[in-house]
């Protein structure tokens, strides 16, 4: 693929994306419109994240791609291969070694550090979209800080179910100003969003939006005094590494209803196993 520019995108497109990233960092949680380009993979498959990664990668970076926390899911493999070919960057599965991590639906378990960049793939960047389908209206609501509708929705959940019935893409408020969609990460990951040492960039290709969280930004999951935010997870240890602090995938192991729970973050799990930790289902 040598006919294409470094990291695929032409320089003018990268400049446009880079300018949007800078404004995103200057206004944490605000969705910056950008002229997303058609990429050689479908909209909805990470084109926003891919464009952001293409705009930030340098040839010296170490790039990691995860989907559902795993490095070896097919779409993660596909995106990693794309950048190996078009940017010639070195890739890794080790979270600690990576300088740029593109993710879909998870934040790695291991705390990220300064010098790292986490790029999220975002399907619907607008946290108010399912309450108000019109962009012209939601943009007005953000400008007026009119977030009552969101609180009403969450409170209706409580009155109906006794709980807030949002378990992923759980809305957050950034620095007391913008309500932001953290992408469809499980709410278990929400507490990692705030005060993170790494830079967090969010790219929504089809919806043409980029937003950002600088390091050490205050990010609060929306809740109520009598119903505080609860980042729950399945109440099991990982079957392979025994971790009790990680987010778990549920795997069906037979047709008699047998199931086990394993870390969704494959790097975290294998590093723990390599360090000698074992779970009850490990060989």
């Amino acid at each position: 693929m040598t006919d294409y520019n470094f990291a695929y995108l032409d320089e003018q497109t990268k400049r446009m994306i880079r300018r949007a990233i800078l404004k995103g960092l200057a206004i944490p949680g605000y969705q910056v419109p950008f002229a997303s380009r058609e990429m050689p993979m479908p909209y909805g498959w990470g084109t926003g994240g891919i464009q952001v990664s293409a705009a930030v990668l340098t040839p010296e970076d170490r790039f990691k791609v995860i989907d559902q926390g795993a490095d070896d899911t097919t779409n993660a493999v596909s995106i990693r291969t794309f950048f190996e070919r078009t940017a010639g960057v070195k890739t890794t599965t080790a979270t600690a070694e990576a300088t740029v991590i593109q993710t879909r639906h998870r934040i790695p378990e291991a705390p990220l550090t300064e010098g790292q960049i986490l790029v999220y793939q975002v399907p619907i960047p607008e946290p108010l979209r399912f309450l108000e389908p019109r962009e012209s209206e939601t943009r007005k609501m953000h400008s007026l800080e009119e977030y009552g509708l969101m609180h009403v929705k969450l409170y209706e959940d409580i009155s109906r179910h006794g709980h807030i019935a949002t378990s992923y893409a759980y809305p957050v408020k950034v620095e007391g100003r913008y309500v932001m969609d953290p992408s469809p990460i499980p709410k278990f990951d929400n507490p990692k969003l705030g005060d993170m040492a790494a830079i967090q960039l969010f790219g929504a290709g089809r919806e043409q939006r980029i937003y950002a969280l600088p390091p050490y930004t205050q990010v609060v999951s929306l809740d109520f005094e009598d119903h505080p935010f609860d980042p729950s997870r399945a109440d099991h240890p990982c079957g392979l590494c025994g971790a009790e602090d990680s987010y778990l995938d549920e795997v069906i192991v037979d047709d008699a209803g047998g199931r086990m729970f394993v870390c969704s973050d494959t790097d975290y799990c294998s590093a723990r196993q390599a360090a000698g930790h074992t779970g009850k289902d490990a060989a």
Partner: peptide
């Protein structure tokens, strides 16, 4: 078509939380 077909991609994590 991209967004429609993306629901073929794994959603283990969000499904697990549901």
């Amino acid at each position: 078509t991209g967004f429609l077909e993306h629901i073929k991609l794994p959603h283990y994590v969000d499904f697990q939380s549901e």
